[in-house]
Write a protein that binds this DNA or RNA. Structure first.
Lengths: 343, 343
DNA sequence: CTGTTAGCGCATTCAC
DNA sequence: GTGAATGCGCTAACAG
């Protein structure tokens, strides 16, 4: 069973190749008679429509966007934030008749190969670090590209909220009336260091999102009269509830335990809350906690958090990657005050 | 800035097109000298590598698999089961250097168009209904295709567990010592009917997974001496915790409330447990509950459930869609007994 | 190790 | 409303 071509269909239908092509691409420009002959011939030969690769080559576009997901793909799917971002991309792609190709980054050298080989018209890159080698690779492709979160790269769009301002705002809620604030942080760089350090001793974070949020938390701490060197920052290697719970347990059992913890994600905050329960701390009395993203779990737990629509940001990225419009750069956010912080 | 071609690179490098081509595809077959000339020319022209569409056309394969996700794509990403299945696919694709294109199904007529237009070598279809029109469309493409869960379609592979047997087994745990068992079910068909009916009055389910699980629950009920007509089945329009919670609340406040509920997913079971708490029912004393999939939430809630590795099944689907090996058909499962059922 | 030939399957011209 | 020619950018198959 070999591949059936449009030419064979045309021949069997007794029309030219172009008439057959029009039947699929501009049905209106073909007479009913010709069209039905073509369709009949196609059915008889088992021709299911024009070949996608040939068509892409011919028209110079694949009608597909590539979504670059850092680290394990599984991580991306495990992360509800990433997932709703993807859903926003999917909304736009489905509407425009575009496909959406997932380009998983494994950390191996062939990542770049997969990027340059991808049959896509544009790229959407999920938050990564300043030094990620895929960035120059995508840049060199000179196709429309957007980065979500950061970093900001010449020639590529950026869709993000003002992470520093939002962190300062939610940090203010977290650290209100606190004597001993702490932070549970996303990874600083791709080497995935994990451990607790005073804020002032942290190495420079290479993930812009992490860097900005830390800067905002620092502002909030200092506004509350606490020096950054006195704020323990628990750096997680990965963004998940389990590691955050372990980190929070460490903090809470230390000599001078925190009475406020600002996390960087709702999942992390959920882990912190579990650790607090285990340690017998009341929330917010003994410990104020804040999250980020206003996920479902935030509402369930009464978490004060930063609300942003990852879904809308995903949609904005998709539009930019399709070349429809320049990315907005600054997406809206707001603080949702709930019961996990002191009133 | 026009598209740079391999021919231009070859010309600038002073070699034939094939030498340039080999430089990218079989670096070993080219002298160091030629290779560096080609690379230098490419760098000078800003050539980033062979065009993916042209390459796909030429070699007759796209090195990409298509993943067909029912309903809203967002649903797929919102559902942790689906997500770990996707991660399994991604594992295999990343390893083989394949891309992974998401083909979202919106329910509109152009779904089929998107399927036939997809530049993919094979298809993986996430659980759907017997009458889903995309099935014949994919079948007609005569490319490797696998369905997860069901239905079973001629010419397409199937990767699934024995849902009926697993349902009978977990149902036995759920309905142990129960006088009034009930079921919280996935949708029966794509029209998304929602409501509570006696088991015996249900319309024939068109989703094979739902059908098989219902059949298993029926076996379990009858084995416990309860007629299927006496088992209320709450059919949800969607697979999420919130709707399951509402359904369970309805069941629990009815005249003759259940003392055992077998759900079809852990998320649903989590919703049932929330409803039980709200209604002041003790678990498993007043109400036994079972889930499905052994997700993280199941361990947290002490849920008796069916364990299966969606991730491994995703990987198996990917291998089949790549034509590496025929699908296994029957994946392993087991019952995990925890504290949500009577000992 | 390198080059020549010959299309892959289709859609954009531009005729008629 | 239909058709003939042309080439999109690349690589398999063979020579040399």
């Amino acid at each position: 069973m070999k591949r059936v071509t449009l030419a064979q269909v045309a021949e069997l239908a007794g029309v030219s190749v172009m008439t057959a092509s029009y039947t699929y691409n501009r049905p209106g420009r073909v007479s009913d008679q010709a069209r039905s002959k073509v369709l009949a011939a196609a059915a008889q030969l088992g021709y299911a429509g024009p070949d996608a690769s040939a068509r892409s080559l011919r028209r110079g576009s694949t009608r597909t966007v590539g979504v670059v997901l850092g680290e394990h793909l599984s991580y991306a799917f495990d992360d509800p934030e990433a997932v709703s971002f993807m859903a926003g991309i999917a909304d736009v792609c489905a509407d425009r008749g575009f496909g959406m190709t997932i380009l998983p980054i494994t950390g191996a050298a062939d990542d770049i190969q997969r990027i340059t080989d991808a049959a896509v018209d544009g790229f959407i890159v999920w938050t990564t670090s300043d030094d990620d080698p895929i960035l120059p690779a995508i840049q060199a492709l000179k196709r429309p590209a957007v980065i979500h979160g950061g970093p900001s790269v010449r020639g590529m769009g950026l869709v993000t909220i003002d992470n520093r301002a939002a962190a300062a705002a939610v940090g203010a809620a977290a650290f209100k009336d606190a004597r001993r604030p702490a932070v549970v942080s996303f990874p600083l760089s791709r080497d995935r260091f994990s451990g607790v350090l005073p804020g002032a001793d942290l190495p420079e974070p290479l993930f812009p999102v992490t860097r900005e949020r830390l800067a905002g938390y620092r502002q909030a701490a200092e506004a509350a009269g606490i020096a950054w060197r006195d704020v323990p920052v628990a750096v997680c290697a990965h963004n998940d509830a389990a590691e955050a719970e372990r980190m929070a347990a460490t903090l809470l059992t230390s000599a001078d335990p925190p009475d406020a913890i600002a996390a960087m994600g709702d999942q992390q905050a959920a882990g912190v809350i579990r650790a607090a329960r285990t340690a017998g701390r009341a929330i917010p009395g003994d410990l104020a906690v804040t999250g980020w993203d206003d996920a479902a779990v935030a509402a369930q737990l009464g978490l004060t958090t930063v609300a942003q629509s990852l879904r809308e940001q995903g949609a904005a990225c998709a539009q930019a990657a399709l070349g429809e419009k320049p990315p907005s750069r600054t997406a809206p956010w707001s603080i949702v005050h709930r019961t996990s912080t002191r009133p």
